[in-house]
Structure formats: C-alpha cells, structure tokens
C-alpha cells in the first residue's frame, strides 16, 4: 500500500521526465539542439514559483476545481491500472479526462480557451469510440479486468503479436498518441489558438496541470504496455514505455498538426477499420 504512494510520486517524476525526453527527441529529429531532458520538470517548478491569481472573467471556483479534478482522476486511474482493475473504469477515467479538458477551456472565459473547449468536444466524437474499440479485447480474452488480461498474456503470449488483437493495439496506440504533447491530433492546444484550453491557466494552476498530465502520460503508456505486451517488472515496464514513447516522438516530429476536421476524420477512419475487422473476425471465429 505504501508502494502505491511511491508509484504515484514515481509517476509524476517519470511522466515529466518522459515529456522532456519526448521534446528532446523531437528537437533532434528536426535537427535542433532542443532543451535538456529535465526541461519539463524545471518548467513545472518554474510555474509553481510564479505569482498566481484567478482571472477576473473566470468562473472562480471551477477554474481551480478543474485542476484538482484533473489530478484526482489520474491518481484513481493509476490505482486501477496497478491493481489490475477493470479496463472499463480506465475507459471511464479517459472520458472524465475529456470532460476536464472541456471544463478547463470553458471556465476561464477567454475566447481561446473557449475554442480549445469546443475543439475538445469535437475531438471527443472520435476519441471516445476509438477507446471503446479497445473493449473488443473482451472478445479475445473473455474478460475486461486488466489482471485477467495480463494472466491471459502470460499464458498465450503478448496480445501485440496476436493477429486478432492487433487492430485494438493500433486503436489504443492512436489514443495514447493523441494525448502526448505536440501530437498531430492535438487540436485542442494548437498554437493558432494560443494554447487552447490551457491558455488562461498560468502559474500554480499550470504547474498543477503539468503534474496531472505527467500522471496521465504515465498511466496511458503503462496501460498500453500492460494491455498489449503483458505485466512486466518495473524497470522493463519503464523501458518498454520509453520505446513506445520514442516511436510516438518520431510521429510527432515528422507530421504536421492536422486541422480539427482532418483529425476527427482520420481517427474515425481508424475506428471504422477496427469495427469492420472486429465484425469480420467475429463472423469467422
């Protein structure tokens, strides 16, 4: 039980470090020197030392509460993942994250935040079904508990190597990809709307958000590795997560930001692909 607390602190630390590595790799691919790998860590600390207040136009309570909720749901998500809880609850937490993204933008009253929030609603249209397709793992393993899925993998080998579960892995990969910074689907914090829904959250609030995002990245990457490769010892888990993240860094570095409708369309196409595959597999099996 104390280990969970340590895992939590580790998740914050590793998440921020991985964000930094992500930035560094992107910079190197684009032949820039890039910031040090500790940048995101220093970034968060810097924000936390700054003068902070609540904008006058904001919905005061919600402006603060949404940051707290953002961190809280991912603490819960980490617990569900570590104890091998239900994949459905993880899915729920992902959806609640969409809600907090929306709330972040709405609460400030800033037009940029509002645009970010509206784009978050648009992207929910494709991201939610995308995550739901992961539920098709149920067809393969016969259970939605993460502990059962890892037990299945221990017996039958990683799901990533099985042809049946591959489309689900792709769907989950796109989901994780669309949640790391600088990704092609990141329309809600695109630079043409300043920082989207994060625009007005500065100082301490931003530092809190970065903390939450760090746990989120850790949970999503760890969930991907656990679901499709299997339960690994901690050091191996961290290495596997790093490898997954590095592949994402390449994609982020080499692809431009998509326009909102293109992002939704591409994700919807992947959903269509997975659904058709699942239906065909269901008919054949």
């Amino acid at each position: 039980m104390i280990s969970f607390l340590l895992y939590l602190l580790l998740a914050v630390f590793i998440g921020l470090l991985y964000h930094g590595i992500h930035r560094k790799v992107i910079a190197r691919i684009q032949t820039r020197p890039g910031p040090p790998v500790w940048q995101e860590f220093l970034h968060t600390l810097k924000f936390s030392f700054k003068q902070t207040w609540i904008p006058m136009t904001a919905s005061q309570l919600m402006f603060v509460a949404i940051v707290v909720i953002m961190i809280a749901i991912w603490v819960g998500g980490l617990y569900v993942l570590l104890t091998g809880g239900s994949l459905l609850i993880l899915f729920a937490i992902f959806l609640l994250h969409k809600i907090t993204e929306h709330g972040l933008g709405l609460s400030s009253g800033s037009p940029y935040g509002k645009f970010g929030a509206i784009r978050s609603v648009i992207s929910a249209a494709s991201e939610i079904p995308l995550f739901a397709t992961v539920g098709a793992i149920y067809m393969v393993t016969g259970s939605l508990m993460i502990s059962d899925i890892t037990a299945y993998e221990a017996a039958n080998g990683p799901l990533l190597l099985s042809v049946i579960a591959l489309p689900m892995a792709i769907a989950m990969y796109v989901i994780v990809l669309s949640k790391v910074p600088y990704n092609p689907f990141g329309i809600i914090e695109a630079k043409e709307i300043v920082s989207g829904n994060k625009t007005e959250h500065f100082g301490v609030w931003r530092a809190g958000l970065e903390t939450g995002f760090a746990i989120k990245t850790f949970v999503l990457l760890a969930a991907f590795v656990t679901l499709f490769i299997g339960a690994l010892p901690l050091w191996l888990l961290l290495i596997a997560m790093l490898i997954v993240l590095l592949t994402m860094s390449f994609i982020c570095a080499l692809t431009p930001m998509l326009s909102p409708y293109d992002a939704v369309t591409i994700q919807a196409l992947i959903i269509g692909f997975v659904v058709v595959y699942v239906v065909i597999a269901g008919v054949i099996l």
């Binding site: 969970f4 909720i69 961190i71 809280a72 603490v75 617990y79």
Partner: peptide, 8 residues
C-alpha cells in the same frame, strides 16, 4: 483519501 488529498 489519496484521490482527494493528493491533488490538494
């Protein structure tokens, strides 16, 4: 307890 108090 952690979900409530860690963010706080």
């Amino acid at each position: 307890a952690l979900v409530i108090f860690f963010p706080l």
